[in-house]
Every structure is written in structure tokens, then in C-alpha cells.
């Protein structure tokens, strides 16, 4: 269930972001928005975000550069790249840098929702493994 999943939508096309954000909210996601790479990084730094939906081609800091910084600062945040036909290779490069997946723009909403949920699932699993490792470590160090 998407309830509580925090999604950040990043694209320089403001009307696109606005409509997509409302559609995701109607499906139960909590949605934040940003219209460029720097604004996206600020949101990720200041607020809890589970999944970023990130356009590859943006003026200024592009999608790949933004992805690299997100992964550097918040490695557990999952990123789904939005790409056009001509920038698929860039999106695949993004996956090498740690993006969860990519989608062609315009997106199919059902596909996007599925990928957001899967990306969130991977983040939750990862967080759970870290939590468990911390508990195990604590038990070991205290000799229990």
C-alpha cells in the first residue's frame, strides 16, 4: 500500500509536475515537488523522502548529476529516472550509479506506481537489514 510512501517528483516542466503530483496523491502517496536539481537536493536533505522520480534532462544540474549527489548524501533514497527516447542511455548510466529503474516519458501511471512501490520495498528491506545488523552488533558487543 502506498500510504505513507514519500515521493519527490523532480522535473522542470511545472504543469507536468503539478498534474503528476496530484495523481500520485490521489493514489495515497505523500508527494513533494521540485523543479530543478538543486531544489531537489535541498528537499532530500531537509525532509524524509523514500523515492525520487527524477527527470534526466533538466537545465542546470541535470538528472544524472542530481542522482549522484542524492546517492552521496542519502544512499538509501531510491531514484526512478524519467527519460525520453534519446536519453535512454543516460538513464541506464543512472542505474549504474544506483538508480532503481527508469521509465520513458510520458509515463504510464500504473507502471510508475508499480515501480515506486517496488523501489520503496527495496528501501524498506535495506533499512530493516541495517536495523537488524545494528541489533546484532549491539548484542555481540554487550556479550548477550
Amino acid at each position: 500500500m502506498p500510504d505513507g510512501v514519500k515521493v519527490l517528483v523532480v522535473d522542470d516542466e511545472e504543469p507536468f509536475v503539478d498534474a503528476l503530483a496530484q495523481r500520485l496523491e490521489l493514489r495515497g502517496f505523500t508527494v513533494l515537488t521540485a523543479f530543478n536539481g538543486d531544489a531537489a537536493l535541498a528537499v532530500v536533505q531537509e525532509k524524509p523522502v523514500d523515492v525520487v522520480v527524477l527527470d534526466v534532462l533538466m537545465p542546470g544540474k541535470d538528472g544524472v548529476e542530481t542522482l549522484r549527489e542524492i546517492k552521496q548524501n542519502k544512499p538509501l533514497v531510491e531514484v526512478i529516472m524519467l527519460t525520453g527516447h534519446a536519453t535512454v542511455e543516460t538513464a541506464i548510466e543512472g542505474m549504474r550509479l544506483g538508480a532503481y529503474d527508469y521509465l520513458m516519458k510520458p509515463t504510464d501511471t500504473d507502471d510508475l506506481v508499480t515501480k515506486i512501490n517496488k523501489a520503496h520495498g527495496r528501501k524498506s528491506d535495506h533499512e530493516e537489514r541495517i536495523r537488524q545488523a545494528n541489533i546484532d552488533n549491539l548484542l555481540r558487543t554487550r556479550g548477550w
Binding site: 507536468f16 498534474a19 490521489l26 509515463t107
Partner: peptide, 14 residues
Amino acid sequence: IKNVLATIKESAGL
């Protein structure tokens, strides 16, 4: 044009 279509698609979907 594809960016325009993407916005129209999301708006119609909304």
C-alpha cells in the same frame, strides 16, 4: 513536443 504531450496526458489522466 513530447514534453507538451506528457503534460496533456497527465492533465487528462488527472
